[in-house]
Design a protein around this nucleic acid. Structure first.
Lengths: 328, 328
DNA sequence: TTATTTTACGCAATCGTTTGCGTAAACCTC
DNA sequence: GAGGTTTACGCAAACGATTGCGTAAAATAA
């Protein structure tokens, strides 16, 4: 491949002149510019980003770590991120942990090592998980976390107010007169799942309604698993089922149908995410909208801001909204 | 950040020794190893990937260009790619064109420039589009294209046999006794869409059935657009509708219902992709399965192979299958 | 003990850029 | 036309690694 030296040679000038010219610095006269342009064209020269990164220690590259791209909500977050990032001349390095928390450390490790200028880690951790590790990371490189809601970690973050979203759902259902609820959560020890459950229970509690132990089941954010959970829960005859994702809500719909019940007449179902899925089901799902694309965009903006001028940790909270359709 | 020099200094050895040791080369005695380990731990040294890349000209990084990550099929392809690539110690740079073909050149341009060791471009082009440009790219860097099916370009590629998939659909429908068909394509000038349409028409043709001009409409791979297209097409009273994606097929289902028809009794609907969507709709969609995750994995394997030993362009074809559910 | 091989490690060039410093040439000003 | 600015560009030192070559020291052989 042609390098800056070869074009300098061909143009009969010094490499520094070529460098300055391609960097858009002024002070190079027309005649020289033309010679350089000609040389560049002839050799098919393109500046070597890696070399540039080494010298300037800016890579124009941002690392993204996600649990999996196959979950539409994460895909949406990534979409929001890449849109904003690309618009700001950053490229993105994607690392997917495939839902293995253990791979997160590995992924972040490879991304560090001077490969990226900043990092965004999306998705909640299990238990207390990699808390300490991330504490360390944020001292090495600008970091923003998305939907990872430590009680007291001091991170730049954009978080969706999952709890508030669940309360909207509960509030709405109670208002409609339902009293006997069931919930399908994601993973029992997953932060996001817990927050969603917590908000729902909390709102019910304030309305003086108890949610029985038996009325909560894990659906693992999977259609099939949620279907089985739903079959079990339906045995307890809930009046309404709250699922922690639209996909799982769709499974509830299916289970309900297979039990010979009809939604919303016999039972209400409510999902979470307002993903495409929620429009597609019959009946279309009432759901808690969580603005995933915007979350990604917000994270990108926050990171860019933080890289420009570091400072105390900043936080942006994404609102949730209730989208009422036909399943309630 | 600590660099190799500082650890060499602290350990009291030469940088070359540190370099060799961390690279796993032998011939460094125990005593020295311990000193180096101590220095590394104390300084928190991690090798600088960019510098290494510059010297060795291998980045351990692969570029991926996709139209959009929000389409589940592309997300699946990316998932397959990253899984295989990460397993082979590559990181991935993702560039999303947001369906703007014009951004493709830009994206590939940034990825080139010594940033990646190889490139995979997924998604079909418009018209003849960026053909010449990619011709050029493949001389610069190992390249594999996914689902971009030139008539005669000499590329490494993994392609899904869309035409065959459509023929399966047509064959099946004709076998069931349907004779009057409508089709919702993606984009009129999009390769993938054209192939899907072509296969369907071809099979019908062989069976002596004509597909009227009016019976084909663009759905732009969008739920809403496809819904409108479907409303129009239903006016012509087709016996079966073939949609070029599951999402659009779901829209057809909705349109059908809104017209007071019931699937499959009054009309059959068939989708494409076998994405999660196809299980979720009521009735569940009969669809052409296209193994997107496996396509991604195959592309990764192919690229790795090509990088190891270049040679004449290789090609892998992904089969399609008919998955029969309740919509036909 | 001496000669020979092997092991362990230092020296310095290199990858492709950027950039501070230095200086001829060109341009003004009077 | 001498003095002072500005403009255009060359020189060389970095950035943080890798690696071929060279050589003391250690190990082995004679």
């Amino acid at each position: 491949m042609a390098n800056i030296k070869s074009v300098a040679q061909k143009a009969g000038v010094n490499v520094s002149t070529v460098s300055r010219y391609v960097a858009g610095k002024l002070n190079v006269k027309k005649e020289t510019r033309e010679k350089i342009d000609a040389a560049i064209a002839e050799l098919g020269y393109r500046p070597h980003a890696t070399a540039k990164a080494l010298k300037t220690s800016v890579t124009n590259c941002i690392g993204i770590v996600i649990p999996t791209i196959r979950n539409p909500l994460f895909a949406d977050i990534v979409a929001g991120l890449t849109q904003r990032l690309e618009a700001n001349k950053f490229t993105t390095m994607l690392y997917s942990t495939e839902n293995h928390l253990s791979k997160e450390k590995e992924g972040i490790g490879t991304l560090l090592a001077g490969r990226v200028d900043g990092l965004v880690v999306v998705g909640s951790s299990g238990k207390t998980g990699s808390r300490d590790w991330l504490e360390e990371v944020k001292d090495i490189i600008p970091l923003v976390v998305v939907n990872r809601c430590w009680q007291n970690g001091d991170f730049n973050r954009v978080i969706t107010d999952f709890t508030a979203g669940s309360r909207l759902a509960a509030d709405y259902l109670v208002g409609k007169g339902y009293r006997r609820f069931a919930v399908i959560t994601g993973y029992k020890d997953n932060e996001e799942s817990q927050l969603k459950l917590y908000g729902f229970e909390q709102e019910l509690w304030q309305r003086g309604i108890m949610l029985g132990q038996d009325m909560v089941a894990e659906g693992f954010f999977s259609y099939d698993k949620a279907y089985h959970a739903a079959r079990k829960l339906l045995g307890y005859r809930p009046e309404a089922v709250f699922a922690a994702s639209d996909l799982m809500a769709a499974a509830v719909l299916k289970a309900t149908k297979d039990c010979g019940l009809v939604v919303p007449e016999d039972m209400a179902v409510i999902g979470y995410g307002d993903s495409q899925i929620s429009q597609i089901t019959t009946p279309a799902l009432t759901t808690v909208a969580q603005h995933a694309v915007e979350s990604g965009a917000a994270a990108a903006n926050l990171l860019i801001e933080v890289m420009k001028e570091p400072g105390p940790a900043r936080e942006v909270i994404m609102r949730t909204e209730l989208v009422v359709r036909q399943s309630t």
